[in-house]
Design a protein around this nucleic acid. Structure first.
Length: 569
RNA sequence: CGGGGCGUGGCGCAGCCUGGUAGCGCGCUGCCUUUGGGUGGCAGAGGUCCCCGGUUCGAGUCCGGGCGCCCCGACCA
């Protein structure tokens, strides 16, 4: 039933007041989604069609690499999560049944799938294996936002690969790279595959698939052929003019100047000639303080810092800084006598710098790493505009994470006992990978990337309908009869068409058509009867295209529509 | 978790400061009108003003508590 007079497509002229992101506003306005609660969204019929288009593309490509579709339960016993160590995660929804048993709502399905594989796989002959599903994920997100971009419940395609060794895992991973590349290509999105953080759980490698758009929550670093999430990106910094050398650091008075910008301006030196001190407490049980030193204009990257330290850390509190180093705002690396370990960022070149003196209202001029303080080195800063990678200038773009692929290794197979016997009869753990992709984010990213001031402009692979047919004139008129004929001819030929047969004005029909964003708009009105032609507008760019013949004349209307459709983005 | 904001017909908002008949635009229903870019008119329907408690003769408005939602940041295995 795709007559608009009977189809649930509640369009709105005004976006919800609290909507910020383009996709949030337009998907609500176009009648694709509605909110039920914070991070809880319903997909209305037209929206669900878009979602299912993405699902079908993913399914075809997963089947293409030998994936086997299945379904794992959302509601699960807590016990496997305790065994895998994930029961403690805050985002995990936990509940209790009437008997008092602890249950969880799965946020991904590694535990469940690994248990089944552990039960049924016994021999190397049973491997490799790729299993996948489309299933709802539940996550108690601290902050759901931007419509369907970040929700507490969402459908994910998650797949899991099982191999006999690391080499097999690399092959399964590579199969997923191919499938994911093809999925992205087929959706019509602009996308990047970027290097990603492997997380504290210590994976063996990971990539993310990113769709650049202003509403994106992630940042990708691009330079020539390089593409990485900013969380893991490394680059060469712009050179900076350092200070003249002096035999030993000189005290300079800097009353009240606690920021890098103030000190640099006051001394007339570039911010990069300052050493910024960022004290952190390492949360590995030792609670020891580490003083991270960076070039003045650079920022600490928490993820890179965590991998350098081997543990998470938190910024030190003011009283901790006072107690162990000196007055906040004037702390520096000189004269600590080994009380606090110093981690010097790799971007800090050899030379002479300004640094805090660990005395109130005082800095030191002419501080040289090594001569004036001992240090360990690590790359712990966030890449910034102006950096370069192999000579190519870095650019940084916001992006939505659409999918990610991850070499898990033995992370789940060991605690959950997923083993097999090799040819020698030796029991070995199964090497696993996990691979996720979010159809809802594909839909939202497409809205973000291609919308214009009139509404959504779907890539044809994702559009809810191929054709939006607009009938002008009152019901019962000859032009209406002609429009009905067009609808019947297209529908009979299998063209997916939404037919605006409502008793409305042309303006609102055109506006709704452009809001919904189907790639082709066909209009049948009085003019069509005079000219014998259906008018055609291509949504992308709102270009008028050559008219098509009304049914009953020479020519295969559906065939021509289909041919035109294939030329669209 | 830190900061900011908002809860009044389906949507967008005013009213609250200074307590006294609950309003506007859009949408919706009926009739007429109009029919190639959200037409115009007439007549209607629709609201426990988020919840609980308090103050008061009287609370959408003042006070207290709670809940919900949004935005920024943190977090995001």
């Amino acid at each position: 039933m795709t007559r608009l007079s009977q189809y649930m497509l509640p369009t709105e002229k005004q976006a919800p007041a609290d909507a910020e992101a383009i996709s949030h506003k337009l998907m609500v306005r176009a009648g694709l989604i509605r909110q039920l609660g914070a991070g809880m969204w319903s997909w209305l019929p037209a929206g669900w069609r878009v979602h299912q288009r993405a699902v079908q593309i993913i399914r075809e490509e997963m089947n293409g690499i030998g994936g086997q579709e299945m379904l794992l339960p959302l509601l699960q016993p807590a016990e496997p999560w305790r065994r895998s160590g994930r029961y403690a995660i805050d985002e995990l929804f936990k509940l209790t049944d009437r008997k008092g048993a602890d249950l969880v709502l799965a946020m991904t399905h590694e535990e469940a799938v690994t248990i089944h594989v552990a039960q049924s796989v016994r021999s190397y002959r049973d491997l490799p294996l790729i299993l996948y599903q489309f299933q709802v994920k539940e996550r108690d997100e601290p902050r759901p936002r931007a419509g369907v971009l970040r929700t507490r419940e969402f459908v994910m395609k998650d797949s899991y690969s099982f191999d006999r060794d690391e080499h097999g895992l690399a092959e399964s991973y590579q199969l997923h790279v191919g499938a994911y590349d093809r999925i992205m290509e087929r959706t019509g999105l602009r996308w990047y595959r970027v290097e990603a953080d492997v997380g504290m759980m210590g994976g063996l490698g990971a990539h993310e698939y990113m769709a650049p758009c202003p509403a994106g929550e992630n940042e990708v670093v691009l330079a020539g052929g390089y593409a990485a999430n900013i969380e893991v990106a490394s680059a060469t910094p712009q050179p900076v003019a350092l200070l003249e050398d002096v035999p030993s650091p000189l005290s300079v008075s800097t009353p009240g100047l606690t920021s890098v910008a103030d000190v640099a301006a006051s001394l007339g030196v570039p911010e990069g000639a300052l050493l910024k001190a960022y004290p952190v407490i390492v949360e590995d049980g030792s609670d020891r303080m580490v003083l991270v030193m960076l070039r003045g204009e650079h920022r600490v990257n928490e993820i890179k810092l965590a991998s350098a330290l081997g543990a998470r850390s938190r910024p030190a509190r003011a009283e901790e800084i006072t107690q162990q180093i000196g007055p906040p705002g004037f702390i520096g690396p000189v004269g600590l006598d080994g009380r606090v370990e110093i981690l010097l960022d790799e971007a800090v070149a050899d030379g002479s710098y300004v640094a805090g003196a660990n005395e109130p209202d005082t800095h030191l001029r002419g501080v040289r790493p090594g001569r004036d303080f001992p240090f360990q080195r690590a790359d712990v800063r966030t890449v910034c505009e102006g950096d370069a990678i192999e000579g190519a200038r870095v650019s940084i773009e916001p992006a939505i994470e659409i999918g990610n692929i991850f070499k898990l290794g033995l992370r789940y197979s060991e605690p959950l006992g997923a083993n097999f016997l090799d040819e020698q009869g030796v029991q070995r753990p199964i090497w696993m990978g996990s691979y996720g992709i979010g159809p809802a984010r594909i839909a939202a990213a497409a809205v973000e990337q291609y919308a214009d001031e009139h509404g959504i402009s779907w890539p044809r692979a994702l559009a809810p309908f191929a054709v939006h047919l607009v009938a002008l004139g009152k019901p019962g008129t000859p032009e209406r009869a002609a429009a009905d004929g067009v609808y019947d001819a297209l529908a009979a030929a299998g063209v997916e068409v939404i037919y605006d047969d409502r008793d409305g004005n042309p303006g609102e029909k055109f506006a709704d058509a452009e809001l919904l964003g189907c790639p082709l708009r066909l209009t049948v009105g009085r003019r069509s009867l005079q000219s014998g032609e259906i008018e055609v507008q291509v949504r992308r760019g709102r270009q008028e295209s050559a008219g098509l013949p009304l049914p009953g004349q020479d020519g295969d209307l559906a065939g021509m529509v289909d041919a035109l459709w294939r030329t669209l983005p």
